[in-house]
Amino acid sequence: MANKEQFLVKAEPYYQVQGQEVALYEAAYHARLPVMVKGPTGCGKSRFVEYMAWKLGRPLITVACNEDMTASDLVGRYLLDANGTRWLDGPLTTAARIGAICYLDEIVEARQDTTVVIHPLTDHRRTLPLDKKGELIEAHADFQLVISYNPGYQSLMKDLKQSTKQRFTAFDFDYPEATLEAQIVARETGIDQTVAAQLVKVAQTARNLKGHGLDEGVSTRLIVYAATLIGKGVTPRDACRMAMVRPITDDADIRATLDHAIDATFA
């Protein structure tokens, strides 16, 4: 069985509390209710889960889901070795065995037939059947399932099934309110508070274009990148263009507009 020490979050992650979320999460964990963290990309969902795992002292196993992922990637599969075939647990199985928090990041990216394997773990059964191995695992008492879900940009094809959604309690995350976000950026990167506020301002102009040519606005993560570049001596204008505008769009009109917003903000 996997060593659970290796999955513990060693140091306290920096997490800026925004509201009641910490207490609410603790309550959900104590009841072992599955949790869904919703929100746009790069708004602090992963950071929050990491922080909670640390706070609760639980091991954390994170799986970044993608569309090529199959149920076997979660549950486990037979491998071939010198003695024949050998079973290898997948991350979900490991988490269920050792009593970790299993965080399935961007679960919608996975195909729907993959998603259903989590169902028995998320209701009163708290079991995980390993069909191919003919084994039924009872989840460890400390096990909890957390998924993240970005309702924004996926196509209609990729929405989560109702039967999946209705197995979770949910947190709605969004980009933090401007002053808080500037504080996060300053704290993460050590840059000046006013520059951080200007970066947030530019990011907000891009967020206003969501649904009007942009699928997603500029994430907190990208603001942190821009701030990091500024910390390395890059001018704010260049840093904004490089970390906040170029990555999100190839549309010339939008680029021109955001570039203008940068110039208008950093006068």
Partner: peptide, 13 residues
């Protein structure tokens, strides 16, 4: 025209 449209939205909501 489109750039101006974007300008109104992005900078001024």
């Amino acid at each position: 025209e489109r750039t101006l449209d974007l300008y109104l939205r992005a900078l001024w909501r």
